[in-house]
């Protein structure tokens, strides 16, 4: 039996706990694109140190945990760097224009029944599904 979903559920609960800590502790919505984007485009101003501390944990914790609990875990990212660059640009531009990604609109938005969060999630999942199915099954390029 495939038990991967149990890990998904456990990991998901930890992600939600992270969002709860950030919200109740600092009064912030945990959105990965907003945290990184605010640093990149300089809009973070007063919250720069807080955002850097968050990213230090986000990048640093897997450095410690990866060898301990999931040494075999890989990203399995495509080796086609053209696709990687195009995808990165689209994710960066899209999440900042929409003001949120899977964590901000998805996790934090849906859990407060935000219409914007729900609409954004529906659109990025649909766009992702259509893009993947078209390029993989119809055109056979990825």
């Amino acid at each position: 039996m495939n038990i991967e979903w149990i890990w998904g559920l456990c990991g998901g609960l930890v992600i939600g706990l992270a969002g709860a800590v950030y919200l109740l502790g600092n009064g912030r919505i945990m959105g990965a694109s907003g945290i990184l984007g605010g640093l990149v485009d300089g809009s973070a101003k007063g919250s720069m140190a807080e955002k850097l501390a968050f990213i230090a944990g986000l990048v640093g914790m897997p450095v410690l945990l990866h060898p301990l609990i999931a040494p075999e875990a890989q990203t399995h990212l495509t080796s086609n760097l053209g696709v990687v660059i195009l995808a990165g640009l689209l994710v960066g531009i899209g999440t900042r224009i929409a003001n949120g990604c899977t964590s901000g609109h998805g996790v934090c938005g849906i859990s407060r029944f935000s219409l914007r969060g729900i609409v954004a999630t529906v659109f990025y999942i649909l766009a992702g599904g259509v893009t993947l199915v078209l390029l993989r099954h119809v055109m056979g390029v990825i």
Binding site: A87, A98, H105, G128
Partner: peptide, 24 residues
């Protein structure tokens, strides 16, 4: 919200990474 989410979704589908996992 709509245009941004569609662009984000296209990139997400292409590579399978969104901002959080890309940093993690």
């Amino acid at each position: 919200l709509i245009v941004g989410s569609v662009l984000f979704g296209m990139g997400w589908g292409l590579a399978g990474l969104c901002p959080g996992p890309a940093m993690a």
